[in-house]
Structures are given as C-alpha cells and as structure tokens.
Design a protein around this nucleic acid. Structure first.
Ligand SMILES: [Zn+2]
Length: 509
DNA sequence: CGCGTTTGACCTGCGC
DNA sequence: GCGCAGGTCAAACGCG
C-alpha cells in the first residue's frame, strides 16, 4: 500500500511539474500575444487618428497623399521596431524578475539561518566549530554535537537546496554526508553513548536537528499542516516510515509518528493526527529539514514549511510581537489547533484543559501558516484584488486518480490565525474589543517587513512551483504570529492549514 | 526474504 | 521524588 502510494506520489508530482511547465509557457505566449494585439490596436488607433487629422488638414492632393503614406510607413516601421524592442525587454525583465525572486528566497533562507544562530546563542558553538574546543560551551560539547549543531544551522536552507550556501555553510556538505553515512544502528549507539554526557538523549539520534544548544530551549522549527483529507496521511511527496503510534490523552485519535526515509540519515519526522473536533482534518506536524534533495512533489511542501519556519525565525523570539489578544494566551503553547477552526461554538474544554490534552509538555510558541478560506481573514493590503491561484500537490492524497476541478479558488490572503493556533475559534471573537484588537494585531503583523518577506517568499514559491491547473477548490494563505509575548523558551512552531480541500477524491469529491 | 507496520515497553521531561 | 504524558525503540507480525 505504501509502495503504491509512493509511486502515485512521484507520478503525480511529475505530472504536476509537467503541467506546470507547459502552463507557464502557454501563459507566457498568451501574454505576449495579448501584448501584441494591444500594441497593434494602439498602433492602428494612432494611425487612424493620424489619417483623420491628415484628411482634415489636407485635401487630397497626390503629393500630400504620397507624403502621408511615407509617413505612415515610417511610423509603422518605427513603432514595430519599438514593439520588438519592448518585447525583448519584457522577456529579459521577466527573466530578471524570476532570478531576483529566486535570489531573494535564497537570501531569506540564509538570513533565517543567521538569525537563528544569533538568537539561540549558537555563535559560541559555531565558533567552537572553527576555532577549537576551548570556547565556553565547548567544554561540554562533544564533536558530534558540534557537527550536529552546525547541521542544524543549515536545516532551513537545505530546502532551498540550491547548494549555493557553500560559502556560508562550508562544513555543511561534509556534515551532511557524514550524517548520511551513518546508519541507524550507528546513530543509536552514538545516542546511547552520549546520553551520560549531555543529558540530551536524542542528541545523536537525529543527526540534523536534535543536537540542542546547551540552553534548554530547543528551537527546532516545527511546521504543522492541516488538511482536510480522508486518507490516513497526506501525500507530501516524501517517503515516510512509521515508527510509532501513540494515543494522546483526551484525543481518541492515535497520533502516528513517521520518519523520512528518502535519505537514510534524514532527520525529518512528522506526526500525523486527526483533528479532535473535525475528524476529516488531518494535522501533520513536520519537524526538521531534509538533508537531501527532495522529490519533485515534495518541494512545494518543503518550501512552504521552510518559508513558514523562516518567518517564524525572522519574527524571532526577541520581537515578542504583542499579537496575543486577551483570552487566548492560555492556548499559546498549543502548537496546533486540534479543533476545527470552523466550529463556531466555544470549545468544549477550557483552554488549559485543551493544552493538557494536546501537548502538555510543549512550551512552544508558534506562528500559524493557515491556508484556508474558511477562516475569518484579514486581507493583506493589495492581495485582495489579485488572487494568485495556489495548488498544493501534497493535498492530492495517495490516490492517483484525482481530478482537480477548476473552480472558485480561494484568494491569497493573510490572516491572523491566532485562534487556530491556540485552539480558539474565530467565532469566539465575541466582543468588538477582541475583534478590533485582533485587527490591530493583524495589521501590525501585516505591516511587518519580515512578515511581508516571508509571505512574498511563500507566494513566490507557490507561484513558481505549482501548477495553476491542478487547483483544489479554495485555498488561501494565512500567516499569523502565534508567538506569545514574553516567553523566550521552547521550540517554535509553525502551523499551516489547508482546510478547504486536500485534493483526494475520498474527501474532496 | 525483505520491508513496512504494529504495539507494548522503555525513556525522558515536566509538573506537583 | 513521583506520576503522568509524550516520544521513541524494537521485537513481532503481516504482506508482496
Ligand atoms: Zn528527508
């Protein structure tokens, strides 16, 4: 079954990619032809006007007619040349824009890494990597940890997988290979041997991300994806191996634990659990970043999650953006909403109860990347008009015979998804004060340059990688800052919701 | 037979 | 220190 799924995934991905390329080309041609027509139209208009003027001014003497014709021809040729020139320019500009966006994205990733290193006091570890073992932290570090730390620093960039970070991450590649060379058993042995040293037992088990800095707060970026999907797991383009299952207290739905098996040493894990309130919603939480090239179909999810993580890191622990409205702080530590964001009625549990149910031990804060058009949204300035069409191939679950309907697509808008993150439904914003405070928070977030950067990156990645043809009906991007003000510890979480549809025929028929 | 899943046991962190 | 809950391991099992 799993094998089938994988085959389907790859197949689908390829198809999507192919469609994508074809689509792009078509689009370009279409645009160009449109330009042509418009240009010609304008051109002709101009000629007609000129003719009229000439007719008005000059009463048909042969000489004047000849001169007029010559003039027309000259004008025509000039205009045509200009048109051609403009076309060329247009093409070049297009290329430049594309390249710029790519570079921008890469830079953003690098920046995230840098900031991550800055905020988590990694510089000391980082220095120890190059300078030697005699830094403050180094006394407690074993080489593996340092390596892993370095690797951790590259986590977010690896999904940009351009390989251009060599300069910055000089050791990354070697570390990556080192990680990949290590087998599971070996890493397990390492883990065991390191346990007494570092009190961080999982340190070496996950070579990429689990070497935590000496300070307790582990800031592994986690990205939660919510999708309405009947299938047991979402098709995100990666290969996963289930390594555990647990029934979380309070939630009858078991939580499944998966590990990425695309590459032997890949540190990425994911947890899959049904939403408590709405069993049709699948909550997938990704942790870590792949240390290997991603399958074609997995790049969209990877870029999404990494972008979300980037924004999360960009907003940083220090920002402490006071986006938390009264009454929802208690849920701020809940990384994911296990309740349906659609339910209007108040939650059956109190916030604290819910937190306990969900993840009592997690002291995380998070930003919500909510891709749903069902939620109450606060449109990003300018985004309400243009509605980029998004598609999420990972939504096309494990069945290969999905057919995306062209239809009403959700607009790309950004909204504060605090409620979703904290288990507070939009419908719970009962008072005007709450609403206005939320609106203020949202506007403050939306005006945040970092936020815009992240959104731009997300949009870019979507627009550039996904086919507008294979479009689930209704999706939107929602970004919100779920970080609680004041707290500076714990891992960070990002949650993305893809509620409208997962694309599979089982649930999206 | 190999690979993936299942499932009970074990480990760890956290709150009291 | 103890209990609880989350997370992981690994032997057993199932399937192709
Ligand atoms: Zn991976």
């Amino acid at each position: 079954m799993v094998m089938e799924e994988r085959a389907m995934q790859i197949d689908l991905s390829l198809k999507l990619e192919g469609q994508d390329e074809g689509e792009k080309d078509e689009e370009k041609q279409h645009e160009i032809s449109l330009d042509d027509k418009q240009g010609k139209l304008h051109h002709e208009d101009g000629i007609e006007e000129a003719e009229k003027r000439e007719e008005d001014q000059d009463d048909a003497s042969p000489e004047n007619l000849l001169q007029g014709n010559n003039l027309k021809i000259e004008k025509l040729s000039v205009l045509q040349m200009e048109m051609d020139r403009m076309k060329e320019e247009n093409k070049q500009l297009r290329k430049v824009v594309e390249q710029t966006m790519k570079d921008y994205y890469d830079l953003q990733m690098k920046l995230a890494v840098i900031q991550q290193n800055d905020t988590k006091q990694d510089p000391q570890i980082f220095l120890s990597l190059r300078g030697g073992p005699k830094t403050i932290q180094a006394s407690k570090q074993v080489p593996e940890i340092e390596k892993n730390n370095n690797n951790q620093g590259t986590q977010l960039t690896s999904e940009a997988d351009s390989g251009e970070e060599d300069g910055e991450l000089g050791l990354t590649l070697s570390m990556g290979s080192h990680v990949q060379q290590r087998g599971r058993d070996e890493s397990t042995e390492e883990r065991k041997s390191m346990e007494p040293i570092n009190k961080l037992p999982r340190t070496t088990q996950l070579p990429g991300i689990t070497s935590y800095p000496p300070n307790p707060p582990n800031r592994k970026a986690r990205v939660s994806v919510r999708a309405r999907c009947q299938a047991p797991t979402m098709n995100d383009g990666c290969q996963w191996r289930k390594y555990g299952q647990k029934v979380a207290k309070g939630n009858p739905c078991p939580r499944a634990y998966y590990r990425c098996t695309v590459a032997p040493g890949c540190p990425v894990r994911k947890q899959v659990q049904r939403c408590l309130e709405d069993m049709s919603i699948l909550i997938t939480t990704y942790e870590g970043t792949h240390n290997h090239p991603l399958p074609v179909g997995a790049t969209a999810m990877a870029s999404t999650t990494s972008t979300a993580a980037t924004f999360m890191l960009l907003s940083g622990v220090n920002s402490g953006t006071p986006v938390v409205a009264d009454g929802i702080i208690s849920d701020a530590q809940t990384p994911i909403s296990y309740r349906s964001p659609h339910s209007i009625s108040p939650p059956p549990h109190s916030s604290s109860t819910l937190s306990n149910i969900i993840n009592a031990s997690d002291h995380s804060k998070g930003i919500v990347l909510d891709l749903t058009n069902n939620s109450q949204q606060f449109s990003f300035a300018g985004s309400s008009h243009s509605q980029p069409q998004l598609v999420y191939p990972w939504m096309s679950s494990n069945s290969g015979h999905h057919h995306h309907k062209a239809g009403s697509y959700g607009g790309l808008s950004i909204s504060n998804e605090l409620g979703s993150l904290r288990g507070v439904d939009k419908g719970n914003w009962k008072t005007e004060e709450e609403k206005s405070s939320l609106a203020e928070n949202v506007s403050s977030i939306a005006s945040d340059p970092k936020f815009r950067v992240a959104v731009a990156a997300a949009i870019t990645s979507f627009m550039s990688k996904e086919s507008p043809m294979a479009q689930p009906n209704g999706s939107s991007l929602v970004l919100g800052d779920g970080e609680a003000a004041g707290s500076s510890s714990g891992s960070k979480w990002v949650a993305a919701e893809f509620l409208p549809a997962c694309g599979c025929p089982a649930c999206c028929a």
